[in-house]
């Protein structure tokens, strides 16, 4: 469904992505793990069109995305729950969710999806009239994910959904990711919390200083010596 081929992305002179190639098949959860500054978020930003690759291509079901502006990419069914969440702080929870469905015109479908995300995140329903900026960190994360789902995306990009959350909330969020995936949304999950990510993913890629150094199924990665040492903290 989504494929990156030899993608090179630069920040000015800094060579951030040095030929990233990865693919996500329909219905999968694929995780991209790596340490700080390895290029995880840059990969997502490149897919989203916020950063342009200097060479290489990004394909969504065969269509090249790398020349399109971000809003066109979003309209083609790529939704992101961004790092730092980027919710609209002065809009209410409901207004945020409605913004998520901005490109859609099927009113009944939007209504159904509202019900759906409220079932996934009952907490959001309690906070429906509250301004986004006044939510707690975990609630903002839920809102960002719910808002991305409201677009009924073909592929959902999740950037560090566990960041800054308590262990209980992380469990809750990851359970929800699995539910969302079972309901038919393809997911590319970027995480520092490799243990959690690998426990729910089908396959994984390990990224280090802008290069993919390893790829395998999630269980195999979990048992890989190098991954265990560097990312799972297990000797």
């Amino acid at each position: 469904m989504l494929e990156l081929k030899e993608v090179h992305t630069y920040y000015g002179n800094i060579h951030a992505l040095k030929g990233i190639s990865l693919r996500v098949e329909k219905g999968e959860i694929v995780t991209l793990i790596g340490s700080n500054g390895a290029g995880k978020s840059t990969t997502l930003r490149t897919i989203q069109g916020i950063n342009r690759p200097r060479s290489g291509t990004v394909l969504l079901e065969g269509t090249a995305l790398e020349t399109l502006p971000p809003h066109e990419i979003a309209r083609r069914g790529v939704a992101q729950s961004p790092e730092g969440r980027l919710i609209f702080p002065r809009m209410t929870v409901l207004e945020n969710l409605e913004m998520g469905a901005y490109t859609r015109k099927d009113k009944t479908g939007i209504k159904d999806d509202l019900e759906r995300v409220f079932t996934l995140f009952p907490r959001l329903k309690e906070r429906i009239g509250q301004k986004g900026g006044t939510l707690s960190g975990g609630e903002q994360q839920m809102l960002a994910m719910a808002r991305a789902l409201m677009a009924r995306p073909r592929i959902l990009l999740l950037d560090e959904p566990s960041m800054g959350l308590s262990p209980i909330l992380v469990e809750l969020i990851f359970d929800t990711i699995v539910t969302i995936n079972k309901e038919g949304t393809t997911i590319l999950l970027v995480e520092q919390n490799a243990l959690m990510a690998l426990s729910i993913a089908n396959r994984g890629y390990v990224i280090q200083t802008g290069e993919i150094i390893l790829t395998d199924t999630a269980p195999n990665l979990k048992n890989n010596e190098m991954v265990r040492k560097s990312y799972l903290g297990i000797e």
């Binding site: 989203q48 916020i50 502006p69 971000p70 809003h71 066109e72 979003a74 309209r75 939704a79 992101q80 961004p82 980027l86 919710i87 609209f88 913004m99 998520g100 901005y102 490109t103 808002r147 677009a151």
Partner: peptide, 9 residues
């Protein structure tokens, strides 16, 4: 940025 990710031009 967030607006453009919602598909707003």
């Amino acid at each position: 940025l967030a607006a453009s990710q919602m598909g707003i031009d």
